[in-house]
Structure formats: C-alpha cells, structure tokens
Amino acid sequence: MNREIVETSKMGGDYELALLMVPPWDIEKPPLNIAFLAEFMRAHGHKVWVKDLNISFYNEVHSRRWSVQRGQKSVKRLDMLWEMMSQNWIDPVQMTDVFFEHASDEIEREVNEILDTGARFIGISVHYRNVFFANRLARMIRERDPERIVIFGGPEVSADQRTGKMHELDADALVIGEGEHTLLEFLKANANRRKGELEPVAGSVVRLEGNDFTPYEPRPLIADLDSLPWPTYSDFDVFSYHPEPMPPRLPFLSSRGCIGKCSFCMDHYIAGRFRHRSPENAVAELKHHIERYKVFDFSFNDLLCNGNPKALERLAKKIIDENLRINWWSYAMIHKGMTYELFKTLRRSGCVNIDFGMEAASNKVLK
C-alpha cells in the first residue's frame, strides 16, 4: 500500500495559524474539522500549520503502563484512555493528569514545535472528551509566550456558549458554530492588534479581564456548502491511524446540520439547520481521495445523512454512476422518505451500515 507523504505542515517558522487536535479523540481516522478549516484558510492566502497531536501521542505512548482502580476495574495501559467506555468511568481531570504525567516529554516537545512554527494564532479543536487537555495545553503555550493567541473552536465551545459555561474554557478567543468564515475574519480583524486589544467578529467572542467574554453575535450559517474547499488530508499520514480490523478509512461530510430541534440535543445549536452538498461536489471529493490515497472506505460523519432523502438518493446514484466501488456508513433518523427502493439504492452505492437514532419511544418525551 502506498503511503502518502505529508508535505504541507513542514516547519518553516513563518506560519500565521496553527490548527491542533488534542487527545483523547478518534484514532481511526484524521480529524475532519481542522482539515476543512486548513484548506479554507489556505484558499484565502493564509499559511497554516496543522498537527493531529491526538494520533501522535497515541502512537508514541499508548503501550505505556498505568493503573488506576475503581471498584473492580483497572486500567493497565495508556491506550485505555482513548476508549469510550473507559472515559465513562475515569474522571476527565484525572485522565488529563495521567496524560501529562506519562507523556510529559512528548508534550514538552510538541509545545516547542508549536512555538517554533511562529504562528501567532493557535486554534485548538475542543470536544467534551479533550477539553481539560486543551485547557492545560493552552496555559503551557501562554506561559512560554504570552503574546500567542489561543483560539478554541468545536462542539464543546458551542455547547458551553449555549449553557453559560464559556468561563471554563481557558482560551483568549472562542469561535462558536461553523468556523470557516469566522476564523478568516477574526485573523483579518486582529492581524495588527496586540493581545489585550483583540476585537471579536460575528461568530466569535474575546476574553475580557477575568473569566468574562465579550457579547456573542451569531453568524449566519454557510448556505452553499459547495463553496467550501473540501479537505485533502495532505497534513496527515492517513495510514498512521488505527481502524483495525478494518482497512484504512477517511471521514467525509455530505451535509451539515439537522432537521430536528430536539430539546434534549445540543446538535441543533452547534450545527444549525440541515444543508447538503451537491452530488457532483461530493463525488469529486470522494474520487480525489480514492485516487490519491487508494482508500475506499469512508465514514460519512453527517449528523444525519437522510435529512433530505431525495438528495441522499441523488448522491447514491451519482456514486453508482461513477462506479466508485466504495464502502460507506453513516447516521440517520427514522424518516418516512426512507423507502425500500432507497435502501436498495444505498446498498448498491456501497452503504454497509446506517445507525438510526431512535431518540425516544415515548411520544410524551418526544414532545
């Protein structure tokens, strides 16, 4: 199998923006969100350095020994910290302490590498599983160079803005919701501003004295997803991930948002209304990945791939017409538009699995 040589993230010391994914997160495939952001920022003339610290740390330290007792459970190796079930019973603060204790040399090296890029703006993707690691890393970066501007984005940021917990995020600025246009405008607005003089733009907030942030002004959603450059994954060694026992795979997004507004779910506030890409645009990306990486397995990371069953059918037929011969899987909601004929078309296009969200079996709860 050919290995893709990563070229775009070579060190040079004159980067404007660094984008990071920190552990613990997915070890099976590259991070889709910072891949999208990197290509968008480059398309607008910015020099971007990207690093998936999550997979770097996993590949270096996952076999190291560590043990903690809780009842009858015992973690024996650090790789357990990346497993979802372990994260349900290990305190997240303790988990972060373990990372920094057992991977201190590697973390120190990565902080030096981040600073050596020269990037004044450092963006970190924050999820509920890695927020404590992100906070601690941000503090380390600022201790080394107080003029570096650390920006958090991602689902946890949007959720914390909604629930009033932004003060728990140890960043200089937050990007809330879709990040492409917000991050682009934020860098432009603050290119020549000192750290204490940062100005927010729509879709972002800036830290004031103490734990307060500036008022939040929402940004309209990106209506035309085809206008976004799709991720090339050129910043990642796609064969360094661990989808075993499956073949190498890549994440893919055919849509954003959701058609629901369930009160018990934060996804509507994070991703907004449902929007989908054209089948031509989506298939062009799939063909690129097949030709460049010889990868034929794709995880469709849509919140729900069937927000518009007719659009899903057009995409499936385009995949069939182009004879891509891929395997793909995704998430979906129970929808009247999911006919038997549509399921047969999806299977012909390479769909091997769909996880359906039942939400609740009680009409009272659903109301």
Rank of each mutant, 00 (worst) to 15 (best):
R120E: 11
R129H: 09
Q69F: 07
G118E: 06
M140P: 00
R120K: 14
K76C: 07
L115Y: 02
R70Y: 04
D160N: 14
V98P: 04
I107V: 15
N135D: 14
S125M: 04
P92G: 03
M140T: 00
M85N: 13
M80Q: 14
W89E: 00
K73A: 08
S104E: 08
V131T: 10
Q69M: 11
S74F: 04
M85R: 14
T96A: 15
E156R: 14
R142H: 11
I90R: 03
E108P: 00
E110V: 11
V126R: 06
Q87K: 08
F100G: 02
E113M: 12
S74L: 09
L78V: 03
I90P: 01
W82V: 02
V157A: 07
D145W: 03
A138W: 08
G153Y: 06
N112P: 00
G118V: 05
L115C: 05
I107W: 04
I149V: 15
L137D: 06
N88H: 11
Q161Y: 09
V98S: 02
R162H: 12
R70E: 10
N135L: 13
R142I: 09
Q94F: 10
I141A: 10
E83V: 11
R120P: 08
Q87G: 11
E156Y: 12
P146L: 07
T163D: 12
W89L: 02
Y128D: 13
D97E: 14
S125L: 10
A103S: 13
R109E: 14
A103N: 05
I124R: 02
S63P: 01
Y128V: 13
S125V: 05
I107P: 05
V131F: 14
G123N: 01
G154W: 04
S86Q: 00
V98Y: 00
H102I: 00
I124T: 05
E147A: 14
N130V: 08
G164S: 08
V111T: 06
D79S: 13
P146T: 03
K165I: 05
R77L: 08
I90T: 06
E83D: 12
E147T: 12
A159E: 10
D160V: 02
P155Q: 14
A159Y: 08
Y128E: 12
